[in-house]
C-alpha cells in the first residue's frame, strides 16, 4: 500500500496531464462539430504545455531569476540546483502565444467554412461535398 502511495504521489501530475490529453484527443477524434474539434485541440495543447512546465520543476529551487542588486551579482557563483530549469519555460512561453495565433487561423477557417456551406457539422459537410 505504501509503495502504491509513493508511486501515486510521484506520478499524479503526469496522470492529470495524460487525462487532459485524453479529453482533448477524444474531442478531436469523436466530435462531429468543427468548433468542438477546435476546443479539443486547445485542451490537448494545454495538456502538453502543463507537461513541459512540470518537467522543469526541481525540489527546493526557486524561479529562474538570479537575485541581484544594481551592478552586483556578476561575481557570485550560481548553483544550478537552486533554480528551476528555465528551458521548458522558454519553449512553452512561445508555444502559448503561437497556440493563440494558430487558434485564430483555425477559427478563421471555421468562419470561412460556415459562410460557404452554412454548417459546421462534419457529416453534413461530407454530404454536401459528395453531391
Amino acid at each position: 500500500m505504501d509503495e502504491l502511495l509513493t508511486i501515486l504521489i510521484a506520478r499524479i501530475n503526469y496522470w492529470v496531464y495524460i487525462i487532459l490529453m485524453m479529453i482533448g484527443m477524444y474531442g478531436i477524434i469523436v466530435k462531429k462539430n468543427l468548433m468542438k474539434k477546435i476546443i479539443g485541440m486547445s485542451i490537448l495543447q494545454t495538456a502538453v504545455i502543463l507537461f513541459y512546465v512540470s518537467i522543469g520543476a526541481k525540489k527546493n529551487a526557486t524561479i529562474p531569476i538570479i537575485e541581484h542588486g544594481h551592478d552586483t551579482g556578476h561575481a557570485t557563483a550560481v548553483q544550478a540546483a537552486h533554480f528551476i530549469n528555465p528551458l521548458p519555460h522558454v519553449l512553452m512561453l512561445t508555444a502559448i502565444v503561437v497556440a493563440v495565433a494558430t487558434l485564430g487561423v483555425a477559427l478563421a477557417l471555421a468562419i470561412k467554412i460556415y459562410k460557404q456551406y452554412n454548417t459546421l457539422e462534419e457529416d453534413e459537410l461530407i454530404e454536401i461535398l459528395k453531391e
Partner: peptide, 12 residues
C-alpha cells in the same frame, strides 16, 4: 519517468 521535482532528471 523521473519523480516529480527531481533535480537530477535528464531534462534538468
Amino acid at each position: 519517468f523521473p519523480p516529480w521535482g527531481d533535480p537530477d532528471s535528464p531534462a534538468n
